[in-house]
Design a protein around this nucleic acid. Structure first.
Lengths: 214, 214
DNA sequence: GTAATGTTTTACCAATCGGTCAAATTATCG
DNA sequence: CGATAATTTGACCGATTGGTAAAACATTAC
């Protein structure tokens, strides 16, 4: 007799752990490239190499898979911002924040796209977490940046829009990858674009375009 | 006898024009917030205030609606970049390019999201146009920027990544609107964030953060 | 070993999907 | 007006959707 799904006993089986991981991995593939509504359980099941009812034995609904995936991504996605250190050197902190976000765009593009898909569609599943934990974290770091400006270590600027711009420019290389590749052409087929981007962004944030009057 | 659908006679009826417009308008709403696969003909039909078969009288397939929408958006979306003038003053040109892109994000967020959705899902319908016309346009403008750098009017930098970063930072305010609003909180409920963003981006691109060594 | 539990499969369901068809209705034009 | 063409509707289709029921099968604990 099976009272399954998150098991009667609190303990999770080895098989449970393995299969759940495989499902989440497959679901990340599917959700990140088709969005929630555009993805089907069958696609995920096939990608995970199991039958649909078997998949539904581990996750009761499509939403349950998605929610767990989103929760994970949301957490790891904010790691770099959490690491932002008020005591550190402004230049080094901003530089390393940009670098880390860019590395994440390079190494975890699916996670970035999953998140982008969710936000694009109005964040129906995570609005609360955006207005709560996310906002609080950004508020905190914005205050750090403001303090740096007050101390004269950095030009005064809107810290929120600074953070937005770093998010936008770095995640762009994951979310709009197809476009970036199309525009750069195949001559730059490798991962060189990430190094070029890093160089460019570093220069942009450190010095701007340094436009000289004629 | 109806041989309808893009009409037997070359001329388009008044009704045809009106209804097609209404359908495209409704489809923009639906596609931009649910993506292609996530949207249904029924949703579009309802939003357009007509029955599904009636809608399908004007557009044979769901894809046909989507294609026409994408084509339109792709064209108008590149207007600002096309206006980028080689003969103009670098500072004024870049400044006005940023301003125009930001205005488009503010005034046509659905169009931006439609495009973002398409790219996010791998641009299955427009890969050719990205690799063709889009790439050519960007190549041309990149050369303009390079010429400015050679002439010493602007710091040397990778022109492609400069363009990417302007795209990313401006479209962010349309595509990630929900997130931006959530983080800024409701105190900034109005459209003030666009003015703040404009100020910030102008400063960023003109001077960078002007970080001073301790 | 065997009994209890955990896992997988087969067969299935109602709802929704994109799309068709033919008949009914409305607009246009001489 | 009448006729012809354009538009709209309701009824329908096969395929796919998210999800279920129950029995077959495998694993674990004793």
């Amino acid at each position: 007799m099976a009272i399954p799904r998150a098991a009667k006993t609190q303990r999770r089986t080895r098989i449970q752990e393995e299969k759940e991981e495989r499902i989440l991995e497959a679901a990340l593939d599917v959700f990140s490239s088709s969005g929630f509504r555009g993805s089907t359980i069958d696609q995920i099941a096939e990608a995970a190499g199991m039958s649909k009812p078997n998949l539904l034995y581990y996750f009761r609904t499509k939403e349950a898979i998605h929610r767990q995936l989103i929760d994970r991504v949301l957490f790891t996605w904010l790691e770099p911002l959490r690491a932002f250190d008020a005591e550190g050197d402004p230049e080094a902190e901003i530089r390393s924040y940009i670098r880390r976000k860019l590395e994440m765009a390079r190494d975890f593009p699916r996670e970035s796209r999953l998140f982008a898909n969710e936000i694009l569609q109005g964040a129906p599943h995570i609005e609360d977490e955006l207005k709560g934990p996310l906002k609080e974290l950004v508020d905190e770091k914005a205050e750090v940046i403001r303090a740096w400006a007050r101390a004269g270590k950095i030009t005064g600027c809107d810290p929120y829009h600074l953070i937005f711009s770093i998010w936008a420019t770095t995640q762009h290389y994951a979310d709009f990858d197809v476009q970036v590749r199309a525009v750069l052409g195949q001559e730059s087929a490798g991962e060189g674009r990430f190094e070029d981007a890093a160089r460019f962004l570093e220069q942009l944030y450190m010095d701007g375009l340094r436009i000289r009057a004629d």
